[in-house]
Design a protein around this nucleic acid. Structure first.
Lengths: 130, 130
DNA sequence: CTGGACCCTGAAGTCAACTTCAGGGTGTAG
DNA sequence: CTACACCCTGAAGTTGACTTCAGGGTCCAG
């Protein structure tokens, strides 16, 4: 798969894919011998899908690289891996809880907005104070 | 309340608070006439709490400013407000769904990690392919 | 009345995550 | 054989969200 095809398949731009390769989120792609073009496999596409989801979940590129690197450890050195994973999980749970509260806030706000305002000003401020 | 007190109460740094004021996330603080020090009220603290939660929920500063600005609209011009809010809500739901999937991935990964690997390599790759 | 903790401003610096640029090679349809 | 879409590299530029810096005023405990 050329970089352009991978871009179309993954939804990332060509330049971004090159950047990700440089940053170690993708393994250095193997090259078509004669023209020096990159040649990607299914694996690369799977990684990009993972990257997209991880980004949507709020992980940084550095963290995503760490997660991806875990997948390549021999399975032996699993202790440190486990620690990292549970830290990430706890963090994710915290963020999800925040998002849930945020969602409640916005939904209540929207509802009262639709109900057409008893009071003078939108009640965001009330919602805001937690 | 001085900026330093507000910083301690909110958990944001003094410099960050000045920056947020510049960027319109806080209203221009009123000043102690003689010494030109800012004087903040409870309202400012409430806004900063909201900012913290909104950031944790993945909103950008620009979006947070938009949300805060909604709270100041007269309640009359509510239609456009409603549109913005439901866009944000939908977006939030998408992100929460992503995070949920991510969480499942990581939890499964952690479980198999703890179970001590039947196969050779960590099964992140499997989890990764969705 | 001085030392240290606090406040002010405007400008420059930093970091992550890209994007754009300059300058050049490749491949194929007409 | 040339026009056009694609590929390459290294370096510089951009954006968002801060942080640091330079240079200065304020306040109060000892």
């Amino acid at each position: 798969m050329t970089i352009g095809e991978l871009a179309r398949a993954s939804g990332f731009r060509v330049e971004t894919i090159r950047y990700y390769e440089r940053e170690g989120l993708l393994p250095r792609a193997h090259r078509w011998r004669d023209n020096n073009y990159r040649d990607f496999d299914k694996e690369a596409l799977a990684r990009l899908h993972f990257v997209r989801r991880a980004k949507a979940a709020g992980f940084t590129l550095r963290e995503i690289r760490e997660l991806l690197d875990l997948s390549l450890t021999p399975g032996e050195a699993c202790g440190e891996v486990e620690a990292l994973l549970s830290r990430k999980l706890a963090e994710l749970d915290r963020r999800m809880a925040e998002m849930h509260r945020m969602r409640e806030n916005l939904a209540a706000l929207l509802a009262s907005c639709r109900a057409g305002e008893a009071e003078g000003a939108c009640p965001v401020l009330r919602a805001m104070r937690q």
